[in-house]
Simulated assay, not measured.
Amino acid sequence: MIDRRGALLAALAAGWTGTAAGAQIPAPRGAGSAGPGLPDPAETIDLWPGNAPGMPQVPPVEVVDERSTDPALPDRAVRGIVRPRLAVFRPAVANGSALLVTPGGGYARVVIDKEGYELGRWLAARGWTVFVLFYRLPGDGWAAGPDVALSDAQRAMRLIRHRARSYAIRPDRVAALGFSAGGHVCGDLATRWAASTYAPIDAADRLSARPDAAAPIYAVQSMTRPLAHAGSRDLLLGRQPTSALEAAHSPARNVTAQTPPCFLVHAEDDPVVDVGNTLEFRAALKAARVPVETHLFAQGGHGFGLRRAAGKPVEAWPTLFLAWAKSLGFS
């Protein structure tokens, strides 16, 4: 019998090849840290020079909560992010492809282990350069309001392209992938990449923020009831948003012919984010003739990432993602 958790840990550990070069902010430390054999990335990139734009009068304070009782499988969630940044996973040999990962957390936190670092290690072992985004949260009072996470995602895409040569990646092979509420950030980026959400500050901001491909995974998408995930909707838009505000932040309402090809994954038994979110987004993509690949699984629940998919049919999704990306020209 194969110990699936042990195999997963070994695969994740094999994917990490961090470097201290250019490190600016240490990775967050929780009670469990990264677990045995699973070091945190040593390299981070600040998104903004100095303070991030639109700082609240009372800045948030970053807190790391360790939610796991198993020291071998940490499950850290970060809230109160005041210095948005990218944690970088460098492969031993870069294949030229890059991925921006936006973890979930219901817009109340950013879940960095099971929806960020684990995928970073797994893909780095396969040649991808992965950037996990610590994005600001809309409930913390930033001036950009519901656009604050999108601002960070746009800036991250531009910085990745601006530094493409130093990471041995191609600027036309930069994809985005997000989970749950981070899937909403990903969908928002895929549909509103050209929206003006912050004032340009340097040469990087002259580059496009459009991902070359996007993969919202069990994603929050609709901000309209009954499909909307209530907690994410309230934190993003407030408790009584107008219908216009709901539409402005529902990716299906903002799909155009310029939306990049999309890869969608959802479990039909998801008790947290209704699978109708993915179906509605897919319908909008099809109507706009945007290429879309969709995988629906009968079982999987919510928040499966990599670790909770093991032993179920849904564990195939990362391999399916790689095959789809390859069909688009990603290595």
Score class of each variant (00 low, 15 high):
P36C: 02
Y218S: 10
A92D: 15
S180E: 12
I112V: 11
L189S: 11
A7N: 12
A287D: 11
I169L: 07
V220A: 05
P226A: 15
L150Q: 08
E66T: 13
E293M: 06
A72P: 01
A214R: 03
F134S: 05
R165T: 15
L12I: 15
A153L: 02
P226L: 14
E66D: 15
R136E: 04
G329V: 12
A288N: 14
I81Q: 02
P171Y: 07
P211E: 11
R253P: 00
P313H: 08
Q24L: 02
A72Q: 08
G104R: 04
G35N: 11
A181R: 05
P26K: 00
G120Q: 02
P216Y: 11
G6F: 10
D147A: 13
A190R: 00
L320Y: 10
V82G: 00
A248D: 13
P26F: 01
R67D: 09
D75C: 09
K312D: 08
P49W: 06
G22H: 09
A190I: 09
V64F: 11
A204S: 03
A230R: 13
S232E: 04
C186K: 03
A52N: 04
P216S: 08
L264C: 05
V64E: 06
L177Y: 09
D269Q: 07
R239D: 06
H184A: 01
A77G: 03
G301Q: 09
G145N: 10
T224A: 12
P226C: 13
L296E: 15
G30T: 13
I81H: 01
L119N: 11
L320R: 13
L306K: 08
F304V: 04
V148R: 10
P226R: 15
